[in-house]
Design a protein around this nucleic acid. Structure first.
Lengths: 202, 202, 202, 202
DNA sequence: TAATAAACGAGACGGTACGTCAAGTCTTCCA
DNA sequence: TGGAAGACTTGACGTACCGTCTCGTTTATTA
């Protein structure tokens, strides 16, 4: 018996097709929306056979993930001026700007959406896309702990989840604009203690 | 000439079909996942014609929204003991429990996902599903402001977005468990000021 | 148990609805063709409930049969001048004229077509529609036999079938025009002996 | 821009699917009748996707036409013994036998019926199905003219229409059996001059 | 410098679901 | 209580894509 097909040889892969597919995917997603994105449509737009897509990507979401990752390659700013509130405003502002970009936010939202249906997407997204982008922010939070700006006992990963979750709420539920005011609000509430219950006030 | 089709008369609607459709929708979504949920499948399971679904709901997502709303009718707890941190832990804990429920969380996540593709879902969801459930929490936050537990100048709607966004992050990205520890963390960070930059410490 | 429904009482039938249905049926058939004729469309055009049609007619074809019968009530000419060839030319010409009428031929063809699918139509058509119209022609053929114009041993019913079949060929297969030339040809070949093999010629 | 879809490439066509579709079509038509014949049913019975049918045939009738043409490929007898009446009896008898066959007559009748609703069927039928089958009969009639058996001035195409129309009458209206007696009658009346008005008798 | 083997474009295939239309049945309300 | 209105279940329509499977055609090493 044996397996009927061997895995493809990456060294023979045609780079021009790969790029054409990624470009077509992002363009179609931006123009028509993820809902009407189809493998057939991508193949036609890229001038590529469907099999070439199926050969190299496991799913439609994986193609979009790579396309988005490629498009978002410009590094965000991760300043460390010593002022945590100010630095976080800049960093979160960059991320909010990405999400508010009409060409990038919707594909990202679509990808998060797709992850709900396709269980292979969520881990791929966390590792490939979010992981590398979050690492410097976690590092900035840890440096803040070392300087005593934040309680050193606090786990910083969930802190990042809260910060980004706040942005996701607006990205996914469209409950308001993803602008500087909202970013400032989130930073103020988290790092400025603005919502802190004044339990010892009395 | 006149319009070719008139809207259906709700007084002639058959309640038994409506309930069968909602039950079938939620059951199928729980059993097979939203990805393989289809109007055809719902109709078959409910013993109903497809047209009956198309007649009364604009989209698959709208059916699921109503089905989920119906299933989640039991009121969550909104205590007001005077201890904001403790009360928020209870309330957020209830919501996290809902999202962690394997029969309710995935459909909710699917609905948020669907809202990314179908722009009519997001507002419907905010008004029908989230709105009524959030109102008592907002009221609790305002009562906290009146008692001086929270800065009275602070807008409370975005505060709720931050709290719920933190849960959404785990619901949608599966970055960790939606348990009491996480809820306690979020409440502590927001209302306990645990992450507050100690700018005046020196 | 017993049958759940009793046959309707014809004395309570509303004549205005019957006429509206027949008018709508023929009009729709002429305007849009039999293929797109539907009970729903007839009911809507006639301002009548669908049930009213189902109550009084067994099938769509039966409605059209009655509608066509009603529209074709003007008697054709059945002369008996003593000249069989001339008389048949007039009579067949009348029938060909009916079939060539763009408002009457296509519905008749559609009815013959429908009879192929609905076995109750063919006998109904022969009795209701064709029977009364053919009787005077048969009578004319018999009078020709009595006068010695036709072999008295010959059965005349099949003779009529041959004559009308010739017209049906052009009606149904559109193999040529249903005009006076064709009628003259048919009459000549049948009653003029134009195609007769000249076996005794020598 | 250019047309959005190109015609399919016949060289890539799968013959096994074509045959399965034709077999399924004729079988279903014989078993259940043309009225309940559906593209869905054919596809299911043939183990084929619906698109494969839509790709290669323009309509349900066209599929049946090809199926019937395939089933009726055995050549009929076209003798030329010199005796026109006898030869025509054989030839017409063969055709009547085909039409009287319970597996072939009804599909042929259904096709003629379908041609009334679908205007593309009639010419297709005349060219593909009837044309080749009629050619040798026309040739036989012309040879009869050359021998003086028939008036050489007579157009033979309409003569064929009259002969076959006679059969169609019985096929479509079920006014009597399509047997040898009827065939003999028709041949006698046309070529034997049995119905000829004896205008010069007196 | 061929030969050769893989990836490629193209697209037909068996399927599933779409959203629409009409069939015939059943129920409600009106005159 | 007959009839208009129309919601209901059923089932077929023709379309869009799915993911798989050949086809010839590049393309880029290996012989």
């Amino acid at each position: 018996m044996g397996s009927s097909s061997s895995p493809p040889d990456p060294s023979r892969r045609r780079e021009s097709s790969r790029v054409a597919i990624l470009d077509a995917t992002l363009a179609l997603c931006q123009e028509e929306g993820y809902a009407s994105l189809s493998i057939e449509g991508i193949a036609a737009r890229a001038g590529v056979g469907k099999q070439t897509i199926y050969r190299w990507w496991p799913s439609k979401g994986a193609v979009l993930l790579e396309a988005l990752d490629r498009a978002a390659s410009e590094a965000a700013a991760f300043p460390d001026t010593g002022d945590l509130v100010a630095d976080m405003r800049v960093t979160l502002g960059d991320i909010a700007g990405f999400q508010a970009d009409p060409g990038l936010g919707p594909p990202l939202a679509a990808l998060i959406a797709e992850a709900q249906q396709d269980p292979s997407i969520a881990p791929m997204m966390l590792e490939t896309f979010f992981g590398p982008r979050r690492a410097p922010i976690l590092e900035r939070l840890r440096s803040a702990q070392r300087r005593g700006e934040i309680d050193p006992e606090l786990a910083v990963e969930p802190l990042l989840e809260v910060m980004l979750g706040a942005l996701f709420h607006r990205l996914l539920l469209r409950s308001g604009p993803l602008d500087g005011d909202y970013v400032a609000y989130v930073v103020e509430v988290l790092f400025g203690g603005r919502a802190a219950a004044r339990r010892t006030a009395g």
